[in-house]
């Protein structure tokens, strides 16, 4: 009997999906879940433009300004930063219906559990908050999930609404 293959998430695949989605800017405060597998290679990438901000809610305003200018951006942050930015997400992304695309690392989450079943309170409340705000969200947990990224981003910009990708496993 063979052991089940280890679950894995490839950062390069995510970055490729972001590029094919037309993402030009990445706006970020470092997040330890996505640091090595996403932010570090994005910082070295020649095509993506990385804007390092001081606090996560800045990203929401910058992304809105870029969206008005027909430029696509991804916000790469930790779930604590998302929680800190709720009012900006509420006003700009939800009420003004802006295509704010967020990739949110779930700090200290055990990826063997669903986020709603996490033993971390801060992680457990993320999906219910997104649901309450009417924001579409997708769990990016294994390589097969990467296929969700491009259609979700295209839909967000086409239909003018925000979207969140939740990353609970550190991409390699």
């Amino acid at each position: 009997m063979q052991a089940a293959p280890a679950k894995a998430l490839n950062g390069a695949s995510i970055i490729a999906a972001l590029k094919t989605s037309g993402i030009e800017y990445v706006l970020s405060v470092p997040d330890i879940v996505t640091s090595a597998g996403l932010l570090t290679p994005i910082a070295r990438d020649q095509e993506l433009k990385l804007i390092r901000v001081c606090k996560e809610d800045e990203c929401i305003g910058i992304a809105a300004g870029l969206a008005y200018s027909a430029k696509r951006a991804l916000i790469l942050i930790q779930h604590t930063g998302f929680l800190d930015s709720i009012n900006a997400v509420r006003g700009i992304a939800a009420e003004y219906a802006q295509p704010i695309c967020m990739m949110i690392g779930l700090l200290q989450h055990d990826p063997e559990f669903a986020p709603r079943a996490s033993n971390r309170y801060g992680v457990r409340i993320v999906e219910p908050i997104l649901d309450a705000m009417g924001i579409a969200h997708h769990l990016i947990d294994v390589d097969a999930d990467v296929a969700k990224i491009r259609p979700a981003i295209d839909t967000a910009y086409r239909e003018q609404h925000p979207v969140a990708f939740l990353v609970g496993r550190s991409p390699s």
Partner: peptide, 22 residues
């Protein structure tokens, strides 16, 4: 004129996004 800021304080961030975009 761009007056829909959505959250107090983010005016400067919206401005940065617009400036980068155009």
């Amino acid at each position: 004129n761009y007056t829909s800021i959505g959250a107090m304080g983010l005016d400067s961030s919206h401005g940065l996004g617009l400036a980068l975009g155009r």
